[in-house]
Amino acid sequence: MSKILIVAQHAGGKLNAGTAKAVSCAQKIGGDIEIAVFATSGASVAAEAAKLAGVKAVLQVDNPANDHNLAAVVAPQVAELAKARGSSHVLAAGSTFGKDLMPRVAALLGVPQVSDVMLVHAPNKFDRPIYAGNAIVTVETTATPVVATVRMASFQAAAAGGSAAVEKASTSAKLPTHTRFVGIESHKSERPDLQSAARVVSGGRAFASGENFTKLLLPLADKLGAGVGASRAAVDSGYVPNDWQVGQTGKIIAPELYVAIGISGAIQHLAGIKDARTIVAINKDPEAPIFEVADIGLVGDLFQILPELTSKL
């Protein structure tokens, strides 16, 4: 039977939603699920993790070096813990945290990694996207443990209702000092988080300025109660911050409603929105590729459409 170790992602004493999605992937694999929390003092995160349905144990690894969860510091502890627990699988959410950390863990364990698991066929057989999601490959690995990241847009968060035991754990892994945290620049916002929002409104290069995003896109997002996103072109042009980028190399999302405005629909952008339930596209070019994936398309000038749409909502 499988014994699955999930590395919790957390910040500010709170568990990140991606961890519950990794739990849901682990449930599909089947077996005992353990969550490891690496923190300075991880009690609040561990308590939250213990409440996830299907979790058998939470391992709380407190160490001042775990502040900021640097991959180089956490990876040797994960590798050692996985060995000590006899884990058959080591999983984390496919967020930038998991993507940074898990290949380092895999290499320390001398095994390959499966990135972005979107479907579980068997404990060692998974589907994952390649070529920006333009093909899906079924992969099979014979290595143990199986180290993998979980594509968050493919799994619902595991429900609450669990009551796992929290155990304090420690490792004797030698922790490096070659990597030091300097700072983080986050744009706090009251809007729903892009990665978990039920609705997302995104803008592209056509907005032509950050002011236009503020003037036209944000009021629409507020009316819809939506999170906000953008194309790479809009981020590169400096209209909006980097963490708004949706796509192959940005965030991969699965909202109920995605509204793409002034976005052409390049394959790299589409890679991020394929799992949206309903896609609405507003673009002045009727030939724009975004219309090939849109459920509802409106051809026209965003500078006229958006004020009207927002006022009528």
Binding site: T138, T142, F291, A294, L298
Partner: peptide
């Protein structure tokens, strides 16, 4: 060379159903 992750089968992603194109904001709503 490391033991490879075996590619069993590659398929196309599911295609999305055909959408509609509307003419006005009222139609969109």
């Amino acid at each position: 060379a490391a033991a490879p992750v075996k590619h069993v089968k590659t398929v196309n992603p599911p295609v999305r159903g055909k959408g509609v194109v509307v003419k006005t904001v009222d139609d969109l709503l």
